[in-house]
Simulated scan of single mutants.
Amino acid sequence: MSMLWIAVIAASVLSFAQKWVGYQAPPDVLERPRVSRVTTLLPIALLGALVATQTATSGSEILLDARLAGLAAAVVLLCLRAPFLVVVVGAAVVTAGLRALGWS
Rank of each mutant, 00 (worst) to 15 (best):
P27Y: 05
E61W: 11
V76L: 08
W103R: 00
A82T: 01
G102I: 05
V86R: 04
A91R: 01
S2Q: 09
S104N: 15
D65C: 09
L47T: 11
A49F: 10
A66S: 12
A52Q: 04
T39M: 14
L71A: 14
A74Y: 04
V13T: 08
P43S: 06
L46V: 12
V38L: 13
A66T: 01
L64H: 07
S104V: 15
V21H: 03
M3C: 05
M3E: 11
S2D: 15
A69D: 03
Q24W: 11
R99G: 00
L71Y: 08
T40I: 12
A72T: 11
G22L: 06
A52S: 09
I44V: 15
G59R: 05
S36W: 08
A82I: 03
Q54A: 14
V94E: 01
V76C: 03
Q18L: 13
P83Y: 06
A96D: 06
A69K: 00
M1P: 11
L30F: 00
T40P: 03
A56Q: 10
M1C: 07
A96E: 04
A74H: 02
D65S: 13
T53H: 06
K19L: 12
R32Q: 15
M3A: 13
G97R: 00
L85A: 13
W5N: 13
D65A: 14
V88D: 00
W20N: 01
A10F: 09
V88T: 04
W20E: 10
V88M: 07
K19N: 05
T39A: 10
G97Y: 01
V94S: 02
T39Y: 06
F84I: 12
E31I: 09
P27D: 08
A72S: 11
S60N: 12
L30D: 02
L64S: 07
G90Q: 02
T57Q: 10
L71T: 08
G59C: 02
T40E: 14
S58P: 00
L63Q: 14
R32C: 02
V35T: 14
S15K: 05
E61L: 11
R99F: 03
V76P: 00
L46S: 05
T39C: 08
A96V: 07
L63P: 04
L101S: 09
V8G: 08
I44K: 10
V88A: 09
L64F: 15
A10N: 01
D65K: 07
L46K: 01
L63S: 13
L98Y: 07
V38T: 10
M1R: 12
V21G: 00
V86W: 02
L42V: 08
K19Y: 13
L46Q: 04
M1D: 12
L50N: 06
V21P: 00
T95N: 07
A66G: 02
L85Y: 10
F84V: 14
A10M: 09
